[in-house]
Amino acid sequence: MIFLKAFVVGGLFCVVAQLLMDLTTHKVTPAHILVGYVVGGVVLSAFGLYQPLIDWAGAGATVPITGFGHLLAQGTIQGVGQKGILGAFSGGLAAAATGITAAVIFGYLAAIFFKPKG
């Protein structure tokens, strides 16, 4: 069941983005979608709406880039809880460290080992 829910929720996140791109002007690029979704994830998470979605749909909510926003927001909020105002600075990246580091490492390696095909 969780697999079906993950598929549907993950798919729906993408459908919304597709409509945002197709129904607006050329000024909405993939970069704008990614930025918008991360900030959207932060906002949803701040209102406590994102965690329930993860509990319900699992990877359907963590795999879209909104899940990255959720990680950042929860990181800073918990950071504030533990360390006060300093936590607002340290918590976000601490929570998202694995993803960012993985992206930098694998991205760098791929760029070194592969040549674009064109």
Partner: peptide, 11 residues
């Protein structure tokens, strides 16, 4: 435009 290996849909 975009790097050629970037996943984009061309109109």
């Amino acid at each position: 435009r975009f790097p050629v290996e970037q996943g984009t849909q061309r109109p």
